[in-house]
Structures are given as structure tokens and as C-alpha cells.
Nucleic acid binder design. Structure first.
Length: 445
RNA sequence: GCUGAGGUAGCCUAGCCUGGGAAGGCGCCAGCCUUGAAAGCUGGUGGCGGCGACGCCUCGGGAGUUCAAAUCUCCCCCUCAGCGCCA
């Protein structure tokens, strides 16, 4: 049920849903009142236009037979009618704009299986899975071992781009790309079509997936062209089929895409941001599905399994949360988070959000499907899941696969990408900064 | 970036000069015919409102002229071709 028709048919359900979300939203009653008024006015304008069209056609007929003074009178009369139509149309338009702006701020109705709760503390752990790696007692956090091995360089990242940016170097970069390629191949085998999308998108696309208008301050944009740097590949992948009608027999459509993601993360500083757990740019493999509404919750479970397969194959400790109503994003009807355990930093890291948006996005982006040629197009359900986010995945790998000698073992599934190499090699290119004056240039690895 | 040609319903196309209910074809759907199918014939096939007869909106988007705009004027977007620039 799309936002506007939910407002018309189930305002009470929407009201209850909003209450469980425990955040402020526009007043439903006000919205219903606005919508009713819009429809009443539309009817009036409609009737006026009918009169204008009818009289106008009669005038054309009369003119064909030769004009007269009477026709001039009709024309003057119609000019007045035109002005009052214009006036009414203007009023209607501003009312509709007001209504539509409110509709865009309305959240999705949570699914019945979503636990009711006030905030993140009420999220429900669906399951927790232990690491299959023999982890050492006290592994170093990535922000210690990363610089030691010279595979993660946040200082130079800050120098070049500012706080929240970093370089991956040498085997650090190789590890990231090996993880990316492992994930791409895994998802390809699970039936996803790979796309390499634009990472700058138009304002319309950002509205289509719900990043705008509400979360403008979370994203970077270009002033001259009003293009936006994607915060997630969800934006271009979901907008792939914007304003299109899909074939019911093609559903579910499954696409994946690897992109960098850009987030301003305004206001997030402190212990939690040390290292690369919370950065302005990171890479991610994203999964998106366009589903038949009746199948979308089955698909959600399959999508979760697709994302889960990655962290499982890497032997990492993880848990899956069912987000409660108070923590659920506006656009989601249901959302699972996959969190990885980082044994060095000793904290859980969110690496994947697996969500069913139902028709929240398809309504905004105009993505529909038709079951039969004759049937009316309906909105698809869109789902997406990170499959998964790098940087944080990198943290968990680097901390979980540490040896007591201070090395990092390469997970077996990634070794083919390293030509069979078993451990990450420290990077050898360093300067005075690391070595001190007098020992410049290359050192033996 | 410059010059030119274009953008009409799912697709293809007419209408634009000369303003007055968007025509036709393909595809698709339904019906007739048929043992079945094809062919053929008939009808339907953008969106919104209404139980409905019906009405309104829609010709890439917006603004303007006009009683009336697919059609005339202006601005913008996109596609194609040529030229320029370029990883």
C-alpha cells in the first residue's frame, strides 16, 4: 500500500505505526484533511475546465460558419472563466505541494514481525554465530596493527582529504580487493546480475530511494550541477528501474553493484571513530531486489542468507539483529542488521543492513510491475542488503585472523587471489616519518 | 563546448508550415471463426476521479501568447550526427 493510499484507506494503522517508531512525524489527521481538500478542489477545477472546453468547442464551430458579434461576447466570457480557472488551479497546486511534501516525510508501516521498542537497546538478537577461527587471546585493534604493518594509513588520509579518510596500502589494498572480488563472485553464483553504476546521481534519484528530502545533511553534493555522491549503491541500483513497468514473470530481479560510498557523518567523533570504523568514504558490495509484493518477505530471508554467507565463509563471529520499531529506518518495514565482532577493538560493528522497504521506494521512484497485459501496474517491493560493507569487514578480518607473532593470516577463501600467499606482507615503502632521519627509502620487508 | 536534426501512447510513425476533439501501423489482450493453432474479421490496449453514463489530464519538462497550443514564442533537459576538447 503506497504512502498516499495508506493515508486514505488506513489512517489509523499509519498513526499506530508512527507511535511505535517513537519519533516525531507530520500529523496524520492534518494530512488526511489536506488530501480531502485537494480532492474536493480538484473536482471543482475539473468541472470548470469541462465548461471551458465545451464552450470553446462551440465557439470554434460558430467561427467556422462565419464569426459574429455574439461570438465576441462568448470569447470575452471565456476569458473571465480562464482567469478563475487559473486562480483555482494555483490554489490547488500549492495545496498539493504541501500535501506531497508531508507524504514524503511519512515513514513506512513496520511489519508485524518487527519487535516494538524504544531505541537500539530494544533490538532483538535473532542469532549469534561463533568464529570458526582459533583467535588469539588479545589481538591488537586494527588501528594499532594496521599502521604497524603499514597496510592502513589514516594519518596520510587525513592529510590528503581530511579527517575520516584513509589509504589502504600494499597488501591492505590487495586484501580489500580480494574481499570485493570474493563477494562479487559469491553473489553472482547466487543469481545476482552485476552492474557498475554511476556514483554521482541526480536529486531525483536521491528522492526516489528516500535519502532526500529528509537526510540532505548526511550526503555530499556538488554545488554547480546538483549531483549527489551516493551514500550507498542502493541509490543507483534501485533507481535503475525508476519510472518503469517490469514484467511480473521477471520478478524477483536481483542486482548487485560494487561502489565507493560517501557519508558526511556530521557530528560523529570520539573513541568509536578511531581507525576506519566510521569514515567518510568506504567501499561496499550492495545487493538489491525488486520483488512481487506477495513474495517480498520470503525474499528478505533469502537476501539475509546471501549476505550472511560472506561473513560465514570468512570464519568471523557475527550476530543478526531484528531492529525494533524505535530503531527502524523510516523507509524500512523490516530490517535485519548483521554485526561483526572485532576482537581487538572489542566491539560489534554493523556491516550489513538487510531491509524490506515494501513500496516506500517504488512509490517514490515509480517502479511498478504488471502480472498480465490487462492488469493495472502495481508497485513492486524493493529490498536491499549490504553484501557487505568493506572497511568494517576489513577490521574484523584483520583482528580475527591475527597470529600471536603479530602477523595477519589470509583467510583460505581469499588465498587464490594472493597466489597462495598465507600472510599479509608488511608494506615496504616508507619514509623518514616511519624510520627517522638517516634511514631513508626502502627497507627490507 | 559549437552546429544541425530530432523527442508524439509498450514500440514505430502522421499531424506542426496554415492553432480548434491525437490519426495509422506493429506488438499485446479479449471475442468471432477453427478439432486445435495460424491467417482473417471485430473490439480493446497512457494516467486521475466517479458505482456509472461520463468528465478531466497527458504529445521530453517549464513559462508565455490566445476564448483555444502537439501546433506559435522563450528557457531548460535528453537522444542522434558532424566538428572541437579529452582519460
Amino acid at each position: 500500500m503506497s504512502a498516499l493510499s495508506t493515508i486514505r484507506t488506513h489512517p489509523e494503522e499509519l498513526k499506530r505505526a508512527i507511535e511505535t517508531r517513537n519519533k516525531p512525524y507530520p500529523d496524520v489527521d492534518e494530512l488526511v484533511r489536506l488530501d480531502t481538500e485537494c480532492r474536493r478542489m480538484a473536482g471543482e477545477v475539473n468541472a470548470l475546465r469541462a465548461t471551458r472546453n465545451e464552450r470553446g468547442r462551440a465557439l470554434a464551430e460558430a467561427k467556422k460558419k462565419g464569426g459574429s458579434a455574439a461570438d465576441e461576447g462568448v470569447a470575452r466570457e471565456l476569458a473571465l472563466l480562464r482567469d478563475s480557472i487559473a486562480e483555482q488551479e494555483e490554489a490547488l497546486q500549492s495545496l498539493e505541494e504541501k500535501r506531497d511534501a508531508l507524504v514524503l516525510l511519512m515513514p513506512q508501516v513496520p511489519h508485524a514481525s518487527v519487535p516494538v521498542g524504544r531505541d537500539a537497546r530494544d533490538n532483538v538478537v535473532v542469532r549469534e554465530v561463533a568464529s570458526t577461527v582459533a583467535t588469539i587471546a588479545h589481538p591488537k585493534p586494527h588501528f594499532v596493527i594496521g599502521p604497524e604493518l603499514n597496510i592502513i594509513d589514516t594519518e596520510r588520509g587525513a592529510k590528503v582529504a581530511g579527517e575520516g579518510f584513509y589509504f589502504l596500502v600494499g597488501d591492505g589494498a590487495r586484501l580489500e580487493m580480494a574481499l570485493v572480488n570474493f563477494m562479487r563472485e559469491s553473489h553472482r553464483q547466487r543469481g545476482y546480475t552485476e552492474v557498475l553504476p554511476p556514483i554521482l546521481v541526480s536529486r531525483d534519484s536521491m528522492v526516489g530511494t528516500g535519502q532526500l528530502p529528509k537526510f540532505a545533511e548526511d550526503s555530499y553534493n556538488t554545488v554547480l550541477d546538483d549531483l549527489w555522491l551516493i551514500p550507498t549503491a542502493e541509490v543507483p541500483l534501485t533507481n535503475l528501474y525508476r519510472d518503469e513497468v517490469l514484467l511480473g514473470t521477471d520478478l524477483p530481479l536481483k542486482v548487485m553493484g560494487f561502489t565507493p560510498c560517501f557519508r558526511r557523518e556530521a557530528g560523529g567523533h570520539g573513541v568509536e571513530t578511531r581507525g576506519i570504523a566510521r569514515v567518510h568514504q568506504f567501499n561496499k558490495v550492495e545487493l538489491v531486489q525488486f520483488s512481487h509484493p506477495e513474495k517480498s518477505y520470503e525474499q528478505l530471508e533469502l537476501l539475509l542468507a546471501d549476505a550472511e554467507a560472506i561473513v560465514k565463509a570468512l570464519g568471523l563471529r557475527y550476530r543478526i539483529l531484528n531492529l525494533c520499531t524505535g530503531d527502524l529506518p523510516d523507509k524500512a518495514a523490516k530490517c535485519y542488521d548483521i554485526e561483526l565482532w572485532a576482537p581487538g577493538a572489542e566491539r560489534w560493528l554493523e556491516v550489513s543492513s538487510v531491509s524490506n522497504f515494501e513500496d516506500y521506494q517504488s512509490y517514490r521512484a515509480g517502479i511498478r510491475f504488471r502480472d498480465q497485459q490487462s492488469a493495472k501496474p502495481e508497485f513492486v517491493h524493493t529490498l536491499n542488503g549490504s553484501g557487505t560493507a568493506l572497511a568494517r569487514l576489513m577490521i574484523a578480518v584483520v583482528e580475527t585472523w591475527q597470529t600471536s607473532e603479530g602477523a595477519i593470516e589470509i583467510p583460505p577463501v581469499l588465498r587464490p587471489a594472493f597466489g597462495g600467499q598465507e600472510r599479509l606482507a608488511p608494506t615496504r615503502l616508507v619514509g623518514e616519518r616511519e624510520l627517522g632521519r638517516g634511514r631513508r627509502g626502502w627497507t627490507a620487508g
